[in-house]
């Protein structure tokens, strides 16, 4: 199956980042990663890339609860970027709070809400969705 070129993980939890990367490698998910530890870091780095159009990540796995700038704040800024529609965004959170699920539904640019733990199966589904889209 076709691979994703660049996948982006925005999460403050090093264990999750380690696990997700390993899981992606095992699932043959993507060629390369971008990893940011919070929303602010992600915006700061993604904005110039998005504007120049080079090496735009095809998919972002976005955590909600992060320091400095959380997932929601990131989204609010990110959708201001013109080319944001070229990126598929998944919320990947450990929160099972119905309020978070409801809130995610309000964002058009969010493809799905994935409750942690992330599994190889989930990654396969995401890959399927992204490459066929």
């Amino acid at each position: 199956m076709k691979k994703i070129d660049v996948a982006c993980i925005i999460d403050d939890d090093p264990i999750f980042i380690f696990g997700a990367k390993r899981m992606m490698e095992l699932a043959n998910f993507c060629h390369s990663f971008m990893v940011f530890n919070n929303g602010q870091e992600a915006i700061n780095n993604l904005k110039p890339i998005m504007l120049t159009g080079e090496k735009i990540p095809e998919v972002i796995l976005l955590d909600i609860n992060m320091p400095i700038m959380d997932g929601w704040q990131f989204l609010d800024e990110f959708i201001q970027i013109e080319s944001h529609k070229e990126v598929t965004i998944y919320i990947v959170s450990s929160s099972i709070d119905p309020a978070d699920l409801q809130r995610a539904k309000k964002y058009e640019s969010i493809s799905n809400y994935v409750v942690k733990p992330i599994t190889a199966e989930t990654l396969k589904n995401i890959l399927q969705e992204v490459v066929t889209a």
Binding site: I15, S94, K116
Partner: peptide, 20 residues
């Protein structure tokens, strides 16, 4: 719903990885 779950999900994920 957030903190306890995130630790649990990490454990679950790591075990998955371990098995793989």
């Amino acid at each position: 719903s957030h903190n306890l779950r995130s630790h649990y999900s990490n454990l679950g994920m790591l075990l998955d990885l371990f098995r793989m």
